[in-house]
Amino acid sequence: MSEHVASSDSNVSDGHCHGFSHPMPVWQLLAVFFALILLTVATVYQATLDLGNLELVASLTIATIKAALVLLFFMHMIHDKPLNIIFFMSSFIFVALFLGFTLMDAHGSGYQDKKELKVLDSQRAVAPVDPAAEAESEAPSGNGAGEIT
């Protein structure tokens, strides 16, 4: 692994090779940081496009690439023990189980009922704004909040 060589090089050059510390070379840290910033810009740009259903996939893909960069380099996963990585990554299996079953249940029978938004019984369903209310809204008296509560 080239990164490993690079880091142990820097280790040796500093004269502190103790076997269990793997200082990340500065260029790697900076490169990862700029990659993350670029990806952030990319995801913001991507949001301005109209991708429809692909939008979710695209944003989450970019987010996952960013997460992978953070995990691998900032969190030193590339030098970490396999056991630690297995423990951490397995948590996502359980998250997937949790989300999977819960979502499956929510989209089973009765889904159509759930889709309907209930109109709340509070003043939120107040009639459309009339000219009088509009006039009031220009007065600085916080009546909006008053009407809600």
Binding site: R124, V126, P128, V129, A133, E134, E136, S137, E138, A139, P140, S141, G142, N143, G144, A145, E147, I148
Partner: peptide, 14 residues
């Protein structure tokens, strides 16, 4: 529970 409709007249806010 406390959400206020965005279609109601706005609270004056400075």
């Amino acid at each position: 529970g406390t959400y206020e409709s965005q279609f109601l007249p706005a609270a004056a806010h400075h």
